[in-house]
Write a protein that binds this DNA or RNA. Structure first.
Lengths: 108, 108
DNA sequence: CCTATAGTTCGAAATATGTCGAAATATAGA
DNA sequence: TCTATATTTCGACATATTTCGAACTATAGG
């Protein structure tokens, strides 16, 4: 467990706006819809910011921070910049604290 | 998903010292040892701070913060204050981002 | 080349955080 | 009750974070 690196990930997710942005990227398709790995989970910067009521510069800053922490990827596509989460990142987050006391005591 | 509350949890874990403290509380017993739910995973404030090279007041501040975020429990026992993690907390942390894009794409 | 759209970069300001030392509180034991 | 140990509270200070607006860059389409 790399404390520094993981703390950095948590810090990035520790802001309500950034967590909302990240969470939006984890919801790829509506229930019952067929997901397309190539595009469904990709959102433009502008799409991600909708409804968040923050200035474009603030939005840009937060996404840059999520990217710096290794949580999201960004790539320019024409006028837009697309953002997405690499599948492995979610697995990492979901198993950071596995193999611990939980496993031993959960059924007592 | 309660964004505010979860962001608060992540923020608490987003500091290297606090993450180290929390992580120490997740390692209850050495491999091969029999765990005792009543005591094995309980550490005193002083024990938790060992090797972290921070002032007692800082240590106290960080543990209070972890407690405030709902990540650890604290209870005075004689001269010491014991800290521990409720089993459910680790399960919560390990499943915050499950049921998402990862499930759909991991085997493609 | 001009314009509109999408994002980023760059200060600056307000607020939050991390840290310490000194003083206070809690408890056990002589 | 006096003392030593464990921890917390408080006040102060330095640093980091969040946020914005203005100016800048990048791209697509006349």
């Amino acid at each position: 467990m790399d404390i520094e690196q993981h703390a950095d990930m948590f810090k990035a997710l520790g802001n309500p706006h950034r967590l909302a942005l990240f969470h939006r990227l984890t919801t790829c398709c509506s229930p019952g819809t067929v997901c397309d790995a190539e595009s469904a989970s990709h959102f433009s910067v502008g799409q991600l910011g909708e409804g968040l009521d923050i200035a474009p510069s603030t939005l840009s800053h937060h996404l840059k921070e999520l990217n710096r922490a290794g949580l999201i990827e960004m790539r320019r596509n024409g006028k837009n910049v697309e953002c997405w989460i690499e599948p492995g990142v979610l697995n990492t987050l979901n198993n950071l604290f596995s193999g611990t006391v939980t496993v031993n005591f959960e059924d007592r």
